[in-house]
Write a protein that binds this DNA or RNA. Structure first.
Lengths: 187, 187
DNA sequence: GATTTTTTTGACCGATCGTACTAAAATTGA
DNA sequence: TCAATTTTAGTACGATCGGTCAAAAAAATC
């Protein structure tokens, strides 16, 4: 899995064939088939692995927040900082999310503005922020667009990371927090 | 090219093999090789085709703007509206941009925050908006992050489009304009 | 209508894909 | 120590990839 992450993050999803992964890992590809029921299984393992450690990392910070404003700022900031400590893994999973499709070509992980769980949580928080007096008024749609834009900013940063190695993520996190705080705040 | 766009936009880049394209087009795949020097050539043709019509569509609107504020609002709005009239083509090219890599796996089209031409133009406009008194102060870095976030929002919308068919793009454009106007304006 | 040029077909190439399977090697346990 | 179990290597498989090519078909030219 580590070698698969290495290949996907540095050379892209398409380069991550079992043969390539086995070569980098210094094993025969039979070993991969032995430990994973399929290539898709290996890929999904990489995804759920990151979700797990991401959740472990994020949850305490988010749970400590008492306002929607604080929650969203923390969500953005810690999401970006998590990329610092799990850089290659995040890049790899972003690649997977935007590449993996089922046999008919339907996206396996695409974010849907109406159903995506992450977006739904953000939408809820935006509405809460309005009630708490920190955020402007949102319709359901305008909250969803803003939530999707926040997610796009974070996903887009992951693509940035794959291309440019010397990005100041602490500074980037600060800027994103500023941008979306301004975009959401009460006028 | 039309059939390739159809496949890429509906079933993804990976499904767009020469065999599949030829099948949908009702021709033999030799024909594709006859009219295009390679598959990459066909793909690049699809990209530059969209860039051309995109430029033709956008330029008059942007040229009519007299302020940086107006320029950026128009840039966002017209970019989204262009997706309405060239929906499948835009989805396909977004797919290509995020999938196409050279033989070593290096991204062919990834946006680099420091060098991407589109981001550079947005950065210039943000600085101009500050001078014109409409935008807040930006460092070069903070302008680049905001510019990249604007691009991510637009690219992200393209992915949204691939997944959900019933999206009110006029309303979406308005929301994005609002979001980034608030994010950039003088406090 | 005959000849040349352009276009299309369909078979075929070598390479690579994910996977299956067998036999060897390594490890474990009594 | 030796049999049972787990893990590995290596080969082979059918399928599909992008690309090539000779011959047939269609279109253009005279």
């Amino acid at each position: 899995m580590t070698c698969a992450i290495e290949i996907i993050s540095s050379r892209g999803y398409a380069q991550a064939s079992l043969a390539q992964i086995a070569k980098v890992a210094g094993i025969s590809k039979g070993v991969i088939s032995y430990h994973f029921s399929s290539k898709d299984d290996l890929i999904e393992e990489i995804v759920s692995d990151l979700y797990e450690s991401g959740s472990t990392f994020m949850t305490p910070y988010l749970a400590a927040q008492t306002t929607a404003l604080g929650w969203i700022n923390t969500y953005i900031e810690k999401n970006v900082l998590f990329m610092k400590s799990h850089r290659k893994h995040v890049i790899a999973v972003t690649e997977i999310i935007f590449h993996a499709r089922d046999e008919e070509g339907k996206p396996r992980h695409f974010r849907n503005i109406d159903t995506d769980a992450t977006i739904n949580v953000l939408v809820k928080m935006l509405h809460r922020g309005t009630m708490e007096g920190d955020f402007r008024e949102f319709t359901d749609f305008s909250a969803r667009v803003l939530a999707a834009t926040i997610r796009s900013a974070i996903d887009g940063l992951s693509f940035q990371l794959a291309a440019s190695l010397d990005l100041d993520l602490d500074a980037y996190a600060k800027e994103l927090v500023t941008i979306f705080q301004l975009a959401a705040r009460k006028v």
